[in-house]
Simulated scan of single mutants.
Amino acid sequence: MQRPPLSPRSVIATAADLADAHGLTEVTLSAVARVLDVRTPSLYGHVRDLAALRDGVTILALGELADRAGEAIAGRSGREALRALCDAHRDYARAHPGRWESLQRRAGDAVVRSDEAARSSRGLGAVLRGYGIDESDRVHATRLVGSFLNGFLHLEHVGSFAHSAPPADDSWALLIDRLHGLLAHWHTKDTK
C-alpha cells in the first residue's frame, strides 16, 4: 500500500493524534516522523520547526473547538448558551486531551492571527453579548470564563476531583449556574 503524500495538514493531524494519545510534550518532529514512517528532515518541507508544529496543533484544535461551540450555542442565549459553550469545551477536552493541552500553552503569532482563533473568540463573544456585557468589559468577562474552563478542566483531567464528593458533574453544573449569575449581573454596582 502506497503512503499518501506528506502535506502540512497531514503532518499536523498526525501530531494532533500523537498529542491525544501520549500528551503534547511527546509531540516532537522525530516522533511525528516515526509515525509517518519518514525521516525527520522530510518534515521540514511542511513545518518550519517544533514550535510551528505545535502551533499547528493549536490552530487545528481552535478550529475544531470553534465548530463544536458554534453548533452548541446556535439558537441559545443566556444560561443555555453558556452551558452549551462550557459543555462543548468539556466534551472536547475529554475527547482530545492532547489537542486541549495545546490550547493551554503560550501560542505563537501564527495562532493569534489565525482565522481559527478569531472564530473561537467569536463564539464566546456571542454568548457574552447575550448578557449585555459592554464591549469594553468583554475582555474581562472572557478571561473569567476562560479561567473557569481552563482551571476546572485541568483539575478534572489530572484527577483532582476523583477522591472527594460530590461528583465533578455536580460541581460543573453548580459553577456554571454561579457563572451565569455573575455574568447576568455584570453591571450591578456593589455599593458597600
Score class of each variant (00 low, 15 high):
Ala51Ile: 04
Leu103Trp: 05
Asp115Asn: 07
Thr14Arg: 04
Arg9Pro: 05
Arg54Trp: 04
Arg9Gly: 01
Met1Lys: 08
Leu53Lys: 06
Leu60His: 09
Asp177His: 08
Ala13Val: 14
Glu135Lys: 12
Gly146Lys: 13
Leu62Met: 06
Asp109Ser: 14
Ala51Tyr: 05
Arg122Thr: 00
Glu64Met: 04
Asp115Gln: 14
Thr191Ala: 14
Ser171Ala: 14
Asn150Asp: 06
Ala141Thr: 07
Phe148Asp: 02
Ala126Gln: 11
Gly75Met: 10
Asp190Ser: 10
Arg119Tyr: 00
Trp186Ala: 03
Ser114Ile: 02
Gly108Tyr: 06
His89Gly: 06
Val139Cys: 02
Gly75Lys: 11
Asp91Arg: 15
Leu50Ile: 04
Ile12Phe: 06
Ala126Asn: 09
Leu124Ser: 02
Asp20Gln: 11
Ala107Ile: 01
Ser120Trp: 08
Arg138Glu: 09
Arg48Met: 04
Ala173Asp: 15
Gly70Tyr: 00
Leu53Trp: 08
Pro5Gly: 07
Ile12His: 04
Tyr44Arg: 08
Arg90Gly: 02
Ile176Pro: 02
Arg79Trp: 05
Leu153Val: 03
Glu26Lys: 08
Leu6Thr: 14
Glu135Trp: 13
Asp177Gln: 06
Asp190Ala: 13
Arg129Cys: 05
Ile133Val: 14
Val111Gln: 10
Gly132Asn: 09
Ala93His: 14
Ala93Trp: 10
Glu26Asn: 12
